Simulated scan of single mutants.
Amino acid sequence: MSNSAIRTEHILVVDDDPRIRQMLIRYFEGEGYRVSAAADGPAMRDCLTKAGVDIILLDLVLPGGEDGLALARDIRSRSNIPIIMLTGRDDVIDRIVGLEVGADDYIAKPFHLREVLARVRSVLRRHQTPASKGDNETTESFCFDGWQLNVGRRQLFSADGSDIALTTGEFDMLCVFVKHAGRVLSRELLMDLTRSRNLGAYDRTIDAQVGRLRRKIERDPKNPTLIKSVRNVGYVFSARPTQD
């Protein structure tokens, strides 16, 4: 085992190619992770009902009438489990659609196993509550327009106290907006601040994340009042957050 520490994270690999499944299982088990695998949607759902899963590596092209995008949409409608899409098609449109349905990252085949490991670690690190930071950072909280954002615990609460599920990318995006309220942020700067460079330097990747975030926090996503577009530049967060 290349990593001396035994990890508790459970990875679910969903891919119809048995060679890729076995390769990822061997590699991540060698890194100390617990790994399960599924070849299609029904097997994936069966695994999700039997055991807690911390992250899903999901192939885009799958048999049985449900592709990875449909499965990602289904997962996201019921859960906030991080999703990394795997695909042999390095197409910008596929990448954008994957982000729009709630994927946290996107890796094109053929891939290097070390790259997959780095992406998994990055998404898990951003998704999980930091345990080693000081009390001030883990309890850092902001209020805006009836919303309460707890940065350390990675939670967003609406005015009625409901816990709003956000993907890793959506949460990171909201944190950046709240901490830079009133400042016009270019798409390039948003990529840097949200650590989204690995998603590809495409304006539409940021637009897709902003669109999903608007659907969750705006009263009318088609006429946003919190996250406003700045023509030919980027976006500005117009609310005035207060820090608890």
Rank of each mutant, 00 (worst) to 15 (best):
120 V>Y: 07
67 D>K: 00
70 A>M: 00
98 G>T: 02
104 D>E: 06
95 R>H: 05
85 M>P: 05
124 L>R: 07
82 P>C: 01
53 V>S: 04
77 S>V: 03
90 D>W: 04
81 I>T: 11
48 L>P: 04
122 S>W: 06
62 L>G: 05
54 D>G: 02
95 R>N: 08
101 V>G: 00
56 I>D: 00
103 A>Y: 01
122 S>L: 14
61 V>S: 12
68 G>E: 01
103 A>I: 01
64 G>F: 10
110 P>G: 11
41 G>Q: 11
53 V>M: 08
62 L>P: 03
113 L>P: 04
119 R>I: 07
121 R>K: 15
116 V>R: 09
105 D>Y: 07
107 I>H: 11
78 R>L: 07
42 P>H: 04
121 R>F: 09
54 D>E: 04
124 L>H: 07
48 L>M: 10
124 L>D: 10
86 L>H: 02
47 C>M: 11
65 G>F: 07
70 A>W: 00
121 R>W: 09
41 G>W: 10
131 A>G: 15
74 D>R: 04
46 D>K: 12
77 S>P: 05
106 Y>A: 00
93 I>D: 14
103 A>M: 04
41 G>N: 06
43 A>V: 05
81 I>G: 05
81 I>K: 02
95 R>L: 10
126 R>L: 14
88 G>R: 10
125 R>H: 12
